[in-house]
């Protein structure tokens, strides 16, 4: 469903010349699977997801989403995905109904089918009370619900959640996670980025732990626990990141100059 190979992304940076956000990552995510991208801030999770959603172009490497190449067929790729970002990203001066309808129309859905789909989703997410409320008047949780419905309206086979529970209270976060699980059960391919270990442990079928643009470890949570002899996901994450940072520091001292990316650790 999603096949990422040697994906790289570099930005120009006035301080260091070039900043490497992604240094060649590869992974596969399958239908009916939640693929977790785990990493601290600046690990490259959002860059990877932005490339998958065709908002950014990779510097090198390839990403295939549901059979379409993100570089060569961006418009087809955009029809295959639903993107939910961390900052809800909904229009404040629209009601939830208007917003969802707008995106449904952008996806070319006929109005009758769109309205029946909207009614079903608004019922499922208990959003009928807020259908005529301007998004600016909504709480963060409500906004995130609208954002999820907006991403699901065209029934995409792939859903991308970029730190979708960030800033939400525990009740809403749980609801979001429940929705993600339900979507997985419907056979959707889900890429879920987070830095909250408990969420990843609960949700993800496979996990890639990232730091400074590289994948440090990849596999099912059970596999990773066995391989690193650490059952606690948070502890495992901490150990991997600490080792990566220590290695970078030693390389930096040896070279006498700051490196601009981390070297992958062998698992």
């Amino acid at each position: 469903m999603i096949h990422v190979r040697n994906l790289q992304k570099t930005y120009k940076d006035i301080q260091s010349g070039q900043f490497t956000a992604l240094a060649g990552i590869s992974f596969d995510a399958m239908p009916g699977q939640i693929y977790g991208l785990l990493g601290p801030n600046g690990a490259g999770k959002t860059t990877a997801l932005r490339i998958l959603s065709t908002v950014l172009q990779p510097t090198e490497g390839s990403a295939i989403v549901n059979g379409f190449n993100v570089t060569e067929q961006p418009e087809q790729v955009r029809r295959q995905i639903g993107f939910v970002s961390c900052n809800t990203a909904i229009y404040d001066r629209m009601t939830s109904w208007e917003l969802v309808q707008y995106f449904g129309q952008l996806y070319g859905m006929p109005l009758d089918r769109l309205h029946s789909k909207m009614n079903a989703l608004f019922d499922r997410f208990q959003m009928n009370e807020i259908r005529d409320v301007l998004c600016s008047k909504m709480s963060t949780g409500m906004k995130q619900k609208v954002s999820i419905v907006r991403a699901m309206i065209h029934n995409p086979p792939v859903l991308i959640f970029d730190e979708a529970t960030s800033g939400l209270d525990i009740l809403v976060a749980r609801e979001v996670l429940k929705t993600v699980e339900q979507l997985r059960d419907q056979g959707k391919c889900i890429v879920f980025s987070s830095h909250i270990m408990s969420e990843v442990k609960r949700l993800c079928d496979r996990v890639a732990i990232m730091n400074r643009g590289v994948i440090l470890a990849e596999g099912t949570p059970t596999y990773l626990a066995e391989k690193h002899q650490e059952n606690d996901m948070e502890e495992l994450f901490y150990q991997l990141i600490s080792r990566s940072e220590a290695q970078l520091e030693s390389e930096k001292n040896a070279a006498g100059a700051p490196p601009n990316l981390a070297s992958p650790l062998t698992n």
Binding site: V55, E75, R78, F83, A89, L106, Y107, G108, R150
Partner: peptide, 8 residues
């Protein structure tokens, strides 16, 4: 970003 990731 949301708009850019739509088919428009």
């Amino acid at each position: 970003e949301t708009l850019l990731s739509s088919p428009a």
